[in-house]
Amino acid sequence: MNDRLVGILSDGEFHSGVELGELLGVTRTAVWKHVSQLATYGLKVEKVKGKGYRLEHPLHLLDESRLRDALEGRWKDKLREFNVAHSVGSTNVELLKSSRDLPVGLYDILLAERQTAGRGRRGRVWVSPFAQNIYMSVAVRLPGGFSVLNGLSLAIGAAVADAINTVCNIEVSLKWPNDVWYSERKLAGLLLEVQGEQEGPVHVVVGLGVNVLMQPEAGRGIDQPWTALNDVCEAGVDRNQLCVALIDSVLLCLESYKSKGFLGLKGLWDKYDLLKGRQVMVSSGNECWSGEYLGVSDEGYALVRGEDGGLRSLAGGEITVRPVS
């Protein structure tokens, strides 16, 4: 019911209680109760006597039919499930459960207008306000066991950066292993979760969050510099168009990765590498040291020359790299 109400009010125009009641098939009293519940979405509703209800700001919701039609030509035979939800706890958690039986060669995709329990890497919370950003997960089953995963998160990060650059025509960059930045501020991030056996096919869910329309008050609790596309893209951003570009780029990346691994996409990563040639701080567990970041290896490891002159190869998920200058 609340999803339908959001859809009606998304135009930002006034709608009377009578009109809403007729459209929703409920009483005017019930309309008021449902309108009050929209506060849980983080939405502010104005009520004006004689006019009715309207959202403080219009919403540009994700259009599942438009998205499906746009993807139909290239990916019709590859998409098993494609869904857009108004609200989920976490797109990754939902897709990990629903795609357990996904065959090799096919993809399941879930988008949501908001997450109530969005997650980032290393247990961080991913702030997920309603209808402001993109929250997407893609499920795939890869043959070859866990060894095929080396460099996967970097490859997908490069694909995401390339899609954003193409749609918005801005100079984005990558901070190892897979954060997308603009002007030294985080714009998008990835969370890969894996299930399976050491030697058998691995079930991978790629979670992607992109800040698109996020307002300062929504991101007040984020503990690092961040920005949103609407603040840096002169032409504005159509979230539906960006979703299509992201899905297309990520699926093309996964198709390439199956045959060529990270090496086939390393050139794309190098194109957007933010830290190459800069001094960095590396932290891993209780260890913290500084050195010069030299880029990534053919396997996707970060290469850092320490102050002692020794070259170290760093695996994703084990360390944190932050720019010093």
Rank of each mutant, 00 (worst) to 15 (best):
L61F: 10
L106C: 02
R74I: 02
V321W: 10
L43V: 01
G25P: 08
S65F: 08
S90L: 04
N83V: 13
L61C: 09
G209F: 00
L106S: 13
G285K: 00
T166W: 12
L268D: 10
D223L: 14
E292M: 12
S99Y: 03
L24D: 05
G267C: 10
G209K: 06
A159E: 05
R28Q: 15
T116M: 08
V324C: 05
V296L: 01
A112L: 10
S297C: 03
L152Q: 04
V212T: 02
S128Y: 07
E199H: 14
L38T: 04
E217T: 14
K51L: 14
S65H: 10
R124D: 07
W226R: 01
V84W: 01
I164H: 07
Q198R: 15
L191W: 09
D270V: 01
N165V: 03
V237W: 00
G309C: 04
S183D: 15
D162E: 14
A117S: 14
L20G: 11
S87W: 02
E171I: 06
G219P: 08
G316E: 14
I109G: 01
G73M: 11
F262W: 02
L95P: 11
F82C: 02
V194R: 03
W289K: 03
S259D: 14
D108E: 09
V202W: 01
L303S: 04
L190M: 08
V206W: 07
D162F: 00
S153M: 03
G261K: 01
V304T: 01
G285F: 04
K258W: 08
N169D: 15
W176A: 07
Q241D: 12
Q115F: 05
L102D: 08
L187F: 07
V148P: 02
R54Q: 09
R4T: 13
G200M: 08
W32N: 14
K76T: 07
L192S: 00
V48C: 01
E307V: 14
D248Q: 10
T40V: 13
S128Q: 11
S259P: 00
D298L: 15
K78E: 13
V6W: 03
E234T: 13
K175V: 06
R278A: 07
D69Q: 15
G291S: 07
G151E: 02
Y53D: 00
R114W: 02
G267N: 12
Y182C: 05
H60M: 09
A158D: 07
D63M: 02
T91M: 06
C253G: 11
C253I: 05
Q215M: 12
E72S: 14
P225W: 06
V304D: 04
Q224F: 15
T27P: 09
L187Q: 00
I222N: 07
